[in-house]
Structure formats: C-alpha cells, structure tokens
Design a protein around this nucleic acid. Structure first.
Lengths: 234, 234
DNA sequence: CGTAGCCTTGAAGGTGATCAATGTTTGTGG
DNA sequence: CCACAAACATTGATCACCTTCAAGGCTACG
C-alpha cells in the first residue's frame, strides 16, 4: 500500500477548522482531537481501509472522495456511501472494544484523509459530549441518505439515477456550477443503486443525447437541471 | 389521539434498567435521564408521532413494537425500521434546534413507550458523553440494518423476505422459540422491502405449503429454519 | 503495442409489477 | 347478535422493465 504519510500541516489544519464536525469547538480542543494524527495521501483506487482490517484508527476525509464499499456474496460490490471532505470514516467503530472494518474505503481520484489513532479517540473523543453530539449529527445525515435511498426502492431506474446525481451535486463545494466534483464511473453509479452497468448506461446515454448531462473526464455536468427534477417528480 | 399517559411505575423503571442504552449507567443518572417522562400506551395502529410533528419530545419503546414509516410521493408507505423494546425513536432529532419528524411511528399491536421531553434531553442527555456514546452505538446498529438491506438490492425476492424474517427472529426476546413476536402483515413486509404485497404473498404462500413457515394471528413462526438459511445462501 | 479499465450496443429472457376480482378475518355499532 | 365495513389475504392473467449474456469499441498508460 504505497500511500504517503505526513504530519498535519498548518494548511491542513485550517481546512479542518471549516468542517461542520468541529464547528463551534475551540482550537485547543480540536488540536487535542487530532493529536497523533497523520495525513494520508492516496492515488485513484487505493484503499484506506480494506474490509476486515482491524479498527485501530479512523479517518476524516480532507480532500477528494472515497467510496465505502461492501462486497456481496455474489462477487459484485455495493457502494454504501460516497465520503467527501469533512466526512468521518469508521468513527463509530471506535466505540467497540475490538472490531473489523465492515467496508472498504477506496479513493476516487487522488484524495487525502487524516488518520486518527484509536488511542486519541479514547483519550479525547470518547469523553467529550460535544464531539459525540457532532458525530451523532453526521451519522444522522448519512442515515437520512440511506433512508432516502430506501424510499426510492420502487421507483424506476431513471428516477434513481436522477436523484443520485442531484444529491451528489448538492454536496459539491462549488455552488455556482452544475458539476459533480466526484469522479464517477457508470459502474459506480450502478453499484451505488444496486442495478447493472448496462441499465445505467442506457439511461444516461439517452440523457447525453438529449443534452441533459455531459461527461468530461469522469466528471458529470448537469446541463438541464430542470429536466432531471421533472424526471424525479414523474 | 386516545393514547394513555401515565407516570413511570417502578415496574417500568426496572424494565428500563435492562435496556442496552442504559447499560453500566448509575440508577441516579438514569433517573435524571428519564425526568419528566411519561409512559404512553397505544393500541394497534395508533401513532406516537406523525410525519411532520414538531420534535419536542422523543421516545423509548417499552413494550410491543412500532413501525417507522415514511410516505412516498406515490402514496405508498415505506417502512424504515421496526422499533422494539429498548429502541429510541427520534432521539437524534433532539440535537437540532427545531425540526419536524420525518417519519411516523405507528404501533404494531398494543404497545407502550416512554415519552421524554426535549427539555430533559437538553438538560441531561446533551451534556453527557456516556449516553451520547450509547446513542451512537444504537444508531450504528440501525445503520447496519439499512446497509444490509442495501446490500440485498440485487437479490431475488425470496432472499429478501427470508433475510427480513431471520433478522426479526434474531431480535426476539424469547430465544428458544422460532417465533417472530412482532405482529407482521404481508403488506408490512412488502412496505419494508419495497416490493408489492402480491409478490410477498406468492412467495410466502409457497413457503407455507412447503411447511417452512406458519402464520397464526399475524405472528410468523419459522418451522424449517435451515430451509430459509439455504434460500439466503442461494 | 498491448493491456486494463471503462463505455456501448443488441437480443433474449425472467422476475416482479400491475390490474382486477374474490375470499377471509376482525371489529364496530345498531 | 347480526349486519356491515375495514383490514388483510389470495389468485390469475398480462406485461414492462431491467437483467443477463455476448461482443466490440474507446482511451489511457506502461
């Protein structure tokens, strides 16, 4: 695993300050929460955690994106969540005395994350109600995503895809562009929705032809926002 | 809404002590956490919370079961979770300054729950890292259920149903019987899996004929446990 | 230049949805 | 206690949507 480990730079730290996870917390507390942590830099498709890894650390996404993936019995992958800047990966597992990662976390394009040892969690995160509450909120949001997903179970494929794209667009850091900044393959969209690549391609090809979306270098641009909204509304 | 409100009895309190949410906490702390709370007794199909209700309280399930339901645009319901004894309902919403319930919680058979005012949450739950961690664990478990669900997206219907039944069986308080103690209609199974009633019935009727399951008074008994396991394994 | 990863297209087939009708059980009020 | 309604279960026929399988093309990169 050729990922690069670095101390936390000043620049990294100022980025961290903007995370909603640390909103309203004092700088000194944040420094404690990040003690002994390291910045990991990963290339496309490299994994921070593999399914089955011991949970002796957790991560905060600093830059780029990671897909949280669970392999199924049949060999195909299911993507549980796209983690982007500010998202915690595996933080909840720290409460368990000993455990293994139930998912793999793989970089989508060049990405970086802060790795925080379990010892730091036990020392500073575990005892602090404020940060536990923040973790709660983040978890709640992620749960909402899963629930929204479930609510779409009976919806036709085009509605599922449209919803996914608009949700990801919503989480983009750049608000004035209709560009999904996470590099997404059709396969990943399929794995996230629990459908086949071919079906995704058939739907999205049609959208491309109708000028609703455009793909450049794995980044999807929503050209006709309203068309997608209409598809969702049915 | 004819639900009955009562003070917390001694018997209720001792039941609460067995909840994993309060495991290892002192009696005095638990009393604080439950201050100003009331026991609600509900009949079949009565709701503790309706979608859109103000979040000025949350609940702990004391007895029976509740389905957490979200209505979809098309009019059909989606069941997000079956909450049983010890499960918190809406606890995470207490962190938000002001919000509305995104789901309805409806009793499945005669059930009871402890209603805890938001003020109590803010006074005793919010500041306490220990109970926040417990909430985290519970939330993590519920998230795991949703993820397991998602992993089954591509599985055939019979595997989905079998998995649901075995999961519910697993949560039964009585361990030596193969009886699902939550009264379940076929419609509810369908709503939980995001499929149609007819499909559920066709599958389960076949199982009944083959003697794999039996239904008495809305309670499902797993007669041939191994058969269901085989179906899941495919 | 060859491989790896991703995208595309077509044809065939199956699973579960839809629609419609009917039976069964439970509960309620006169 | 009966009549009626409401909730739940069942069955059949038809059909759409998505999967599956198979083949081939494109682009990046060592």
């Amino acid at each position: 695993m050729p990922m690069n480990k670095q101390e936390l730079s000043q620049k990294d730290f100022s980025k961290v300050l903007s995370f909603s996870l640390f909103e309203g917390l004092s700088h000194s507390l944040i420094k404690e929460l990040l003690s002994q942590s390291r910045v990991l830099t990963l290339n496309h498709r490299e994994a921070i955690y593999q399914c089955g890894d011991k949970t002796d650390s957790f991560c905060l996404v600093l830059d780029g994106a990671f897909k949280l993936v669970r392999p199924t019995a049949k060999g195909d992958d299911v993507i549980m969540y796209f983690a982007t800047a500010g998202d915690a990966i595996g933080a909840l597992l720290m409460n368990k005395p000993v455990a293994e990662y139930p998912i793999s976390a793989k970089a989508m394009g060049p990405s970086s994350a802060i790795s925080i040892p379990k010892a730091t969690y036990e020392l500073y995160w575990s005892k602090n109600a404020e940060i536990q509450k923040k973790l709660n909120s983040q978890l709640y949001n992620r749960m909402t995503v899963l629930q929204d997903d479930k609510a779409l179970a009976k919806a036709p494929l085009n509605q599922k895809i449209a919803t996914l794209l608009l949700n990801l667009l919503d989480r983009s850091p750049v608000k004035d562009e209709l560009l999904i900044y996470v590099p997404l393959t059709r396969q990943e969209i399929a794995d996230s929705l629990g459908v086949t690549v071919e079906s995704v391609i058939r739907t999205m090809s049609e959208w491309s032809q109708r000028g609703i979306i455009q793909t450049h270098d794995k980044k999807i641009e929503i050209v006709k926002f309203n068309e997608l909204v209409n598809i969702i509304k049915d």
